[in-house]
Design a protein around this nucleic acid. Structure first.
Lengths: 243, 243
DNA sequence: TCAAAAGTGTTCCATTTACACCCATGC
DNA sequence: GCATGGGTGTAAATGGAACACTTTTGA
């Protein structure tokens, strides 16, 4: 038991960000190349330390998102994944990191000249397949983020944030297929997704894709939690994103 | 962007524990009466600061569980709920807390003379009903822990850890009813729970409860994840535990 | 023999799945 | 026309809810 005048040891608090997007129907994560030791030159999740001792933790995550990825922080929903606090996870000392999950529609890599200069979108399958190694315990954080994203697709309207302002049902389906890493029956997906009231609402217009019948365009509806949920087939937990 | 020689602000890291148990088929949470300011005299979740800067965060949670509740830490599974880091959550300064969820079978309140002297099991419905106020943001942490426990019951064999070494199916059902806050059809529960292979295994013996047909005794099986899951009725999210 | 608790069988209904089929467009 | 992708209909399989019914005990 601590003494009366005992003071707890201070730690350094960092935030790390798992940012997913879809590029050509393939799930990508945002990585940055580290410019300083430790792990200088290696790839890592974007993130950083608290700015000052009055900064909210989720605010720090938003700030890093802005600084390192140049993504407008206010728009994106950040969800906490958890704290990572193994004593030896950072060779510099005792660093506890709070990880957040963010989802963004497909965007170009932002401008050089900022912290984001070394930011790159990397296919998730490359990371999970071992072709790309991440610094610290960031691979575990990314795996946890992927599982969280997969689960969120079932119960929330998260998938629409992968898409643009308007989208076809098929585009929405490709989001589910890319994140879940499986293929879905497009005809059943059609009805399932439209049976969820206020999940997606028809915009009236259509989109011509060159050949075939034009697809109706939809926009995200007001609903954020899905009733009934769009459940993925049980046991179909693929380690990698859709090829 | 921080300067080269800039150093991040240190924070104090704490752990808080949401510990649930069942006493007479009512869900209880372990609370401690605070002996020091702030919130001196108020009830709070058990927890405390990191002991030293080499201590693992989950190890600190185990240690506090031992110190404050006298519960054998090694036996219990701790699951991280997340980090709570609002700047003003602790008037003493910048304290970020990592919360953990633990489940214990019904146990008496441990011995006086330790940190655990002021530990009490409190019905969860009293806390959620506003009859009991908690210090800091501990009510929110407890609510998050309850929702996590409810969800875990669906997909994991967690419910058996609420019971003793052996139990009847009816006792197991009471766990689900107490945590979910709803009533279940005992006849359907029977088959559902036995349809999950290796979830519970019959021990051969029976238990006589005074009147009525003796119930078969079971013990927890090797399976930790439930296939198929025991889903709770959709929309049946009661705010309080079973009365 | 009756009450009470354990355990079984069966029916009904909602959801899921698989797939046949029709619609609208470019070439 | 015909290939291509968009969208609808429908029947079989599945799984859960409801509940009648049987079994085993104590009193």
């Amino acid at each position: 038991m601590p003494e009366e005048d005992w003071t707890p040891p201070p730690v350094l608090l960092a935030v790390d960000l798992v940012i997913f997007t879809l590029r050509e129907s393939v799930l990508h994560a945002l990585l940055v190349e580290r410019g300083v030791d430790p792990f200088c030159g290696a790839l890592a999740l974007p993130g950083g330390f608290l700015d000052n001792d009055r900064e909210d933790v989720v605010a720090a995550a938003h700030r890093e998102l802005q600084e390192e990825a140049n993504l407008d922080a206010a728009q994106l929903h950040l969800e906490q994944l958890g704290a990572y606090g193994a004593p030896d996870r950072d060779p510099r000392g005792r660093v506890v990191s709070v990880a957040y999950l963010a989802i963004a529609p497909g965007l170009p890599v932002p401008i050089a000249g900022t912290d984001a200069a070394r930011a790159t979108w990397t296919p998730v399958s490359d990371i999970l397949g071992g072709h790309v190694r991440l610094a610290f315990d960031h691979e575990q954080i990314l795996i946890d983020g992927l599982e969280r994203a997969r689960s969120k697709l079932e119960h929330s309207a998260l998938a629409t944030t992968f898409c643009g302002k308007t989208f076809t049902i098929n585009e929405l389906q490709q989001v589910y297929e890319a994140v879940w890493g499986i293929e879905l029956d497009l005809r059943n997906f059609y009805r399932k997704v439209q049976a969820v009231s206020d999940f997606i609402v028809p915009i009236g217009a259509e989109r011509r894709a060159g050949k075939g019948r034009p697809a109706r365009l939809f926009k995200a509806g007001p609903r954020t939690t899905l009733h009934p949920p769009l459940t993925r087939p049980t046991g179909a937990t693929t380690a990698e994103g859709k090829q």
